[in-house]
Structures are given as C-alpha cells and as structure tokens.
Design a protein around this nucleic acid. Sequence first.
RNA 1: GCGCCCGUAGCUCAAUCGGAUAGAGCAUCGGCCUUCUAAGCCGAGGGUUGCAGGUUCGAUUCCUGCCGGGCGCGCCA
Length: 580
Amino acid sequence: MNIKEYLSKQVRQAMNEAGLPLGSDVLLTQSTRPEFGHYQANGALPAAKKMKTNPRELAEAIVKQLNLENIAEKIEIAGPGFINIFLAPDWLASQCENAIKDSHLGVSRHSTPATVVVDYSAPNLAKEMHVGHLRGTIIGDAVVRVLEFMGDRVIRQNHMGDWGTQFGMLIAHLEDRLSAEQALAEVALDDLEAFYREAKVRFDDDPEFASRAREYVVKLQAGDTHCLRLWQKFIDISIKHSEAIYDKLKVTLLHAHIMPESAYNNDLPKLVAELRKQGLAITDQGAEVVFLDEFADKEGKPSPVIVQKSDGGYLYATSDLAALRYRNETLKADRVLYFVDARQSLHLQQVFTVARKAGWVRDEVSLEHLAFGTMMGEDGKPFKTRTGGTVKLAELLDEAVQRADRLVVEKNQGLSPEERQEIAKKVGIGAVKYADLSKHRTSDYMFNWDSMLSFEGNTAPYLQYAYTRIQSIFRKAGINGELPPGRITLNEEHEINLALKLLRFSETIEQVAAECTPHQLCSYLYELASLTMSFYENCPILKQDISPEIRTGRLRLCQLAARTLRTGLDLLGIDVMDKM
RNA sequence: GCGCCCGUAGCUCAAUCGGAUAGAGCAUCGGCCUUCUAAGCCGAGGGUUGCAGGUUCGAUUCCUGCCGGGCGCGCCA
C-alpha cells in the first residue's frame, strides 16, 4: 500500500467534510522531524488564508473529521496549523506482514497503465561508446525498469546514430582497408575509436579521399548497393560493440529495441513535403526551414529549424520528427520520454513544437525531455583520459571490475576464485552505475574512483553489504526460503524506524516513476540500508536470550528488508550477492 | 547579443514542486569487536543556501537586478 496516497485520501475527505472548498490541496508529506510524527498534512494553512479564517481552528475542524482509527495512535495540531500524524506500531507491523505476503512487496501499480515510449542510450555508431553515453543509458534503463514495475507498457527505442555524414568517410576507409589487407572487417574494426581517427586524418589530409567520402554519403543515401553493403558491415560491428557494453552494464536494451536514424530515411521526403503543404516549412536560402515564433528573440525574429539542407540532405531534426510521428501514430504512446543530454534542450523543444503544430502528436501525449548533465573529471572539466582523449566505456568498466577485485581480496580471503570474480563484477559495475544514478539527473557530476568504491556512505557496495549481512543471518539460522511462522511485533525504536521505511518503498517508486529521478530511489535504499544496519547492530536475533517470538518477528522484518533492498537495486540494474 | 541550466558545510551531494530548527556521506575528533560479516555501529564539531531587494503567516524553492560558472543559438549529430 502507498501510505502517503492513502493518508492523502483520508485527509482530503476530512477536509471536504469540514467544509473546505473542493480542490484544496492536502499537502501531505513525510514529517521533517520525529517529534512531528510520521506524516504531516499542511493543507490547513493555505486554505485558511483563502477562507480568511484561523488556520489552527481550521486544522482542528479537519482533525475532528479525520478517521484514522487503528492506523494512527495520535494526531496532533502544531505550530500555525500543521496536522501531525503518528502511525500506530501495530498497524505498521500488519502492513509489513501484508508486504511479506505480496509478491509485489505491497507496491501499488498504476491504476491505468500507460504506453510509454522511452528513447535512451542512442549511441553514435561512428565511434565507440564512451563515458558520455553512460548517464543516458543507465538512467534511462533504471526508469524503464521502474515504469514496468509500476505496470506501464514500456516500449524501448534505441535511436542509434547510424546515418550521419561521417559514414561516407568511414565506409571509404573501410573499403580501402578491406581491399588492401584482405582483412576481416571484424579485425579492421576491432578498435572503432582508432579506426575513426584514421579515417578522419585521411579526410583532412587527402583531398582525393575526402571527395570520395562525400560522394559515398550521397550514394549511400541514394541506395547504392556497394556503399550500403560496406555501411551495413560497419554498422553491424559497431552495434556488436554497443551490445557488449550493454551486456557488461546489465542494461535491458536488446537488438529488437534498435530503431536507428536510418529507419526513418524513406519518411523524410514525405515529411518535408507535408510541412511545406501545411505552410510550416518555407524555402530560405535554398534550405527548407520551419520558423517558430515560439522561440522568437526580443525583436520578434522567429527561430529557424532546418529540415532539409540546400544540397537536399536531411538533418537530425528531420529524423527526430519522423521518429516522433511514428511514436505517436504507430506506437500509440501516452508518454514519450527522451533521455538526452541537457545540451540538446533547445533542439528537442523545437522538434516537439514543430510536431505539435503539424498535428503529428495528439494533444494528450506527454513529451518529456529528461535532460542529464555531463560527467566531469576531478578537475571539474569534462571527464577525459590523462592524454585528453575520450574515455572508452569498455575500458572504464574493466577498470572498475579490477579495482573492485583488489578490494574484495583485501577484505575477504575466504572466497573461491569463482566467487571472487563474480563479486568483483557485481561490486565494480554496481559502483559505477550507482555513483551515476545517485546524483540528480540534471546536474553535472564528478567522477571519482575512490568515493564510488570506498564502500562507505551512499555507495552500491554499502547497500550490497547490508544485503549480505542479512543473508548471513539466514545462513546461520539455517533458513533458506520459507520463514518460520510468526508475526512481526514492533517494540524497539530501531524496529519501528525500519518498518516505516520499508513501507515507504511504494511511495518512493511512485515518485521515481512520475519524475524519472532514480536518485530518489538511491536515497531511499541508502536510508533503508542504513536503518537495516542500525537494526542489525542494536536488535540481536540469534543470540541466546532472545525469545522465539521476538526472533521470528525480527527474522520476518529482516527478510522484508532483504527483499526490498534486492528489488530496489534490481530496479536500478544492480545485482546483490549472498556473500562478499 | 539572445536563450536555457547551475551556484547549499572544507569536499561530494540531498532537501518529496512554498512549510516547522536546511539534511547525509567523505574528511576531522571521540567511543564500540572472546557474542548474527567492524566493508559496520554510536556520538561531536562544521551553514548569512553567491550578493541585494521583492512577494507572504513562512523562501534553498517564486519574481527582479547584479556577480560568478556551464551550455546552446541556419545547412554536424
């Protein structure tokens, strides 16, 4: 059950019965301090202002109507008119029992599932994936998992960049490499980054090569068989590179989710023709341009969006428009989420605006640019290698696993080589992902090996460790799977705090789904792990003088904590293990 | 020049859409291991939320101006 939602409903009803105007906000939040209870309703304050009455008296009238029998042990009015709700430990315990029985951990699903198209990852296939692709890929994947958990119908769309002008140069270079060395394309393209650099050097230094490259772009877009074959070869291998990364990262993107730019190629002429027909696009300096008054400057000069170049070529705005139309018409999206770098904000706003004006998106469809910031190095500048190059994602992840392995060895010598390797992988990859996910999406964030792998504070290893400590108790108690029969009773403060936090899983997930902010799930899990550790240290379970009733109650609480941690981390795409 | 984003403890980050005394972690200092994994737990210090105004019962949050930083703005993606 979503406690916040439930209490909101009850308070809203009480407000209506107390004669407050309909539509008054309940303003129910978690209490900011323990002495203010577990939840507080602040709605009396703004309502009293509107009604020109005394807020405290209004709060009293609301409380008189508020029925939380057997749920709240105390309801207080404090300060200028805050309503503080103290939940009853017995009720919390019974809610925990409900969550234990429920395969979905008591998390409420969306009452009406939405069709959500999620555009994320979208690497440029001309190059290898680098650190710049990490955020969009990981954050998008976490949100996708959360939305599916909430019962939405999620359609993943990997809008890979496979159709830009660089491909002329790349396939020209590939052609030469294949004929000169008779090498397999797989070998020639083993290092995509180096391959790109070689092609670029030739493009810049060799005019003959450059003109052939330009020619190949035109031929490719015109459907020339030879060029298409080379292009396909290149694309196939580049996709394999990306999929190797997805595999390492445990990202849920599959081959079937790839819907690259080239997929919309045949749509583009039709799309521009339609924009012209509607009078939205006009010819300006030889190019087809849509002028938007919505983004006009102070002098009223509208902002231009070029949909076709003067040489007849199309741009990424055009294929983004085609993709959006497809998502509306064919995929029937209710929401379209774009996990795209913050720097493309203007571009996406323009695309959204053009699509709406052209009538390609139903009014009720929600178009959301979930922008994210840049990954910074420790100097506060965009993260680069020591020599100033881009950091390959593959190498970054390998280093994470190696570093984790060294730490695992240091902390625990009693592991088999297989266990050790497995743990190092889960810890290393988990640390990298969590470091990224735990920061607010929109801000730039600082990449630092030591803090993400320090195993202290708000890190993946800390959460994983909390989980293994609980598993260790079950091992010691000889329990695997079935819990002994019994009931949770909440007496100690540590037990109550833990139970309350466990029950807030539902409202946390709901918020993450609505705002697409996985860092809120991270904060929640960290606090949960922290309370679990306190409980672990302060409430003995298997010790001699613990009564069987208390023991089974605490074991049940432990099990719910472990399941919640595991489920929460799974929604972030991070693994847990029984030992570490 | 125009537009968007950001500025919170020494450092890295939060703050549930305007709520009560702005919270964590790291670092610093002090406690706790013959007892369920000390990768841990318990405690202490640390703040004029960039600056100045404004809106109101109430502002880190909203508005205006300034300072400082990042990014974007017609033929790349």
